[in-house]
């Protein structure tokens, strides 16, 4: 009798323990799923918010001030609107291939503008930010000079910057040098110094980069003639 009782008691206790362990396992599983759900949910919220901020940063800043004389497309256009061809050049003042392009085709483009064969729009880009802020500072300085001294001086400044382009991955000239070049191009120091040092058209420059990126511009120089990207070596025929 007592033996049987004991056995039954043992079995009951074992069953109770087993049930207790199962309950605990179930609770643990629930807690685990809840925790994972909370972590995943939190992560998703943070990631989605950050991606949204990133895409906002890629949007055009409508409040940016444009330099006087600039085009709506973040450039400087030389020549008349009724010219036969419309040339657009995306370039970065630090890019060696842009310097090669300028060395080879600047004279050609100038005469094309003079003869009314083409209008040429220079769109300065800050594409080489990985080498420092020279690209940004020069694009801004170009805008400052355009704003303060007009298209011709700006073009001259542009030519000077390419003629004396620093090595892409070396040390880059400072703002004082940019101001010096602006004066050499024909600007008045007092008119450009503050704008160059203070990155006056930073937002406009950054808008230009965004617009070029949206337009699918991959690298510099990108040369377009009448809306079509062309190989620079065929430029002469394209604007004949």
């Amino acid at each position: 009798m007592s033996k049987r009782n004991k056995a039954a008691e043992r079995a009951a206790r074992a069953a109770a323990l087993k049930a207790e362990r199962e309950r605990k396992a179930r609770r643990d599983r629930q807690r685990r799923l809840l925790t994972i759900g909370a972590v995943v949910g939190g992560l998703l919220i943070v990631v989605v918010a950050a991606v949204w901020l990133q895409s906002r940063a890629g949007d055009i800043d409508e409040t940016a001030t444009a330099p006087e004389g600039a085009t709506q497309s973040y450039g400087l256009r030389l020549g008349t609107a009724d010219a036969e061809h419309e040339v657009v050049i995306y370039e970065d003042f630090l890019c060696p291939a842009c310097k090669s392009f300028e060395d080879a085709y600047d004279a050609e483009l100038e005469s094309a503008v003079e003869e009314g064969r083409a209008s040429v729009e220079y769109r300065p880009l800050d594409f080489l930010g990985r080498f420092g802020d020279y690209s940004q500072r020069t694009a801004n300085a170009f805008a400052v000079v355009l704003d303060a001294a007009g298209p011709e001086v700006a073009k001259e400044f542009h030519d000077l910057l390419y003629a004396e382009q620093p090595a892409e991955d070396g040390d880059h000239p400072d703002d004082a040098w940019l101001i010096e070049k602006a004066v050499e191009a024909g600007a008045t120091e007092a008119d450009v110094a503050a704008g160059i040092e203070g990155l006056e058209f930073e937002a406009w420059v950054s808008n230009g980069v965004k617009a070029a990126t949206s337009a699918g511009v991959q690298g510099t120089p990108t040369v377009m003639v009448d809306g079509e990207a062309i190989d620079a070596s065929t430029l002469a025929e394209a604007i004949e």
Binding site: V47, V51, S55
Partner: peptide, 25 residues
């Protein structure tokens, strides 16, 4: 962010419609 979009686009693999999203994300 724009640089990231250009880097993604340079691979010429993804369709243009999703390149910006991938570049930002």
């Amino acid at each position: 962010p724009s640089g990231s979009v250009r880097a993604v686009r340079a691979y010429e693999i993804l369709p243009e419609s999703i390149v910006p999203t991938v570049g930002y994300a």
